[in-house]
Design a protein around this nucleic acid. Structure first.
Lengths: 124, 124
DNA sequence: CCCATATTGATAATGATTTATCACTCTTGT
DNA sequence: ACAAGAGTGATAAATCATTATCAATATGGG
């Protein structure tokens, strides 16, 4: 059966406690604070298991490797800091955007990403 | 100095005449109608040159390889057909979205991608 | 406590996209 | 028309993120 290991606990904790989507590398970094020897392979394995069980979802961003966040959040979008590369969660949404599509097209969903600087980075 | 070859003409024409962003593979396909022996390496080389000279811009999409479109268009967004994978240009924009970002963040730009089915694909 | 085995970590392998190489070809100034 | 050298095509090689491998380790039911 599935076992509860320190590694998995640390990875779950990282995703639960970070209030923003994390890349595999960021998850590794966070979780290593609890489990120093943690390897990247275990991070990927665990992410995949969590996505498969539905408790975590992938956040895809233009030209970037996927980030991961806890599932079950309401519809929202993301902010990508162009300075540090961190991705943050935004709340709110402009609403239905299907008026943007020409006749013949059918819009089913949308993704919005805002870019700029986060509070920790020089306003550039 | 820079030479005007059939290959470059065909690649520029493909990008100019397609009224949507093209992937390197799509550019190859289109341009080969004019220059049958065209190789993918030339497509990449030419794309890079065109981007560098500023006449073409990359269109990055979540979880996808970049597409390329002519530069100089006014602010717009894109539609990604989930059935055929083609990317289309949309006109219009919900406008300023900086109200979405929390205090301390500074939004400089945004990207919006709509997903759904294009006129050529089954509404699925 | 013990052992079957799920899990891990290090690293090799993969897959997909993009770039470098190099001999040959085509463009262009003269 | 000619020659210098920019450009091309085929393909090897480089990236880079992700996955597979496998010996060693740690979990947890009995």
């Amino acid at each position: 059966m599935e076992r509860s290991t320190r590694q998995r606990q640390a990875i779950r904790a990282a995703l639960r406690e970070a209030n923003r989507p994390l890349s595999p590398g960021e998850i590794l970094e966070y979780a290593r604070q609890q489990v120093p020897g943690l390897g990247i392979a275990t991070v990927y394995r665990t992410i995949n298991a969590l996505v498969e069980e539905g408790s975590v979802v992938a956040v895809e961003l233009p030209g970037e490797a996927a980030r991961y966040e806890m599932a079950g959040k309401s519809h929202h979008h993301h902010f990508h800091c162009t300075s540090c590369g961190k991705v943050f969660e935004l709340m709110g949404c402009p609403g239905d955007l299907s008026w943007l599509v020409p006749p013949g097209f059918h819009a089913e969903k949308h993704e919005i990403v805002l870019y700029g600087s986060c509070p920790n980075c020089p306003g550039a």
